[in-house]
């Protein structure tokens, strides 16, 4: 415990200062008032985007300060964050996850694979990109996208 206390005192505030606020997302159904629950679905990725998403919600980038929070259930979520190309086995669970999310909801495709199949285009287990399975509202390209870019996309939803 003393070690942990010393670490806390030494590290202090780890989060970097917030960049300027981006524009809000278009659409009348995005009036969530600064509280957004994010349900992350990995539809078949190489885990690169997962690491970036974990970094986004980590202490350095701290997406939680803008009101975005990772939630445990699609029913609690406002944003479904899709990473990875949609494989055959995951296409139905992905669809069910998005359907289980109550309106108003936003579907975010993060990473080149989710946006347009990326390096896995034409692969043997690949069913398509995210927009082939569900309606995507916001695409975040990159392989993998930097946490800054993911934060900016989330801030467009939370408007904070």
């Amino acid at each position: 415990m003393r070690g942990l206390l010393r670490l806390m005192r030494a590290a202090g505030r780890v989060a970097e200062p917030a960049p300027p606020r981006p524009e809000g997302l278009e659409g009348a159904n995005v009036a969530l008032g600064g509280s957004v629950g994010v349900r992350h679905v990995d539809a078949g990725s190489c885990n690169g985007c997962e690491i970036e998403v974990a970094a986004t919600f980590g202490p350095v980038y701290d997406a939680e300060r803008y009101g975005a929070k990772l939630v445990a259930s699609a029913r609690h979520a406002d944003v479904v964050l899709i990473t990875g190309v949609v494989t055959r086995n995951m296409s139905e669970p992905l669809r069910r996850t998005v359907e289980a999310t109550p309106n108003p909801r936003v579907v975010l495709a993060v990473g080149d694979c989710a946006c347009s199949c990326g390096v896995f285009a034409g692969g043997i287990g690949v069913a398509g990109a995210a927009h082939d399975a569900v309606d995507v509202d916001l695409a975040v390209p990159g392989c993998p996208p930097e946490p800054d870019v993911i934060v900016e996309a989330l801030r467009r939803v939370t408007r904070r």
């Binding site: 806390m8 590290a11 202090g12 505030r13 780890v14 989060a15 917030a18 009036a31 969530l32 008032g33 600064g34 509280s35 957004v36 202490p59 701290d62 939680e64 300060r65 803008y66 009101g67 929070k69 029913r75 406002d78 289980a100 109550p102 309106n103 108003p104």
Partner: peptide, 27 residues
């Protein structure tokens, strides 16, 4: 959050959560 080195969402965040849940669909 502060002990973990983060900034945190603010003391008012639970009220924002409740406000959002009031306008969300109930399934």
């Amino acid at each position: 959050a502060r002990l973990e080195g983060r900034v945190g969402a603010g003391v008012l965040q639970p009220w924002r959560d409740l406000r959002k849940l009031a306008i969300k669909e109930t399934l």
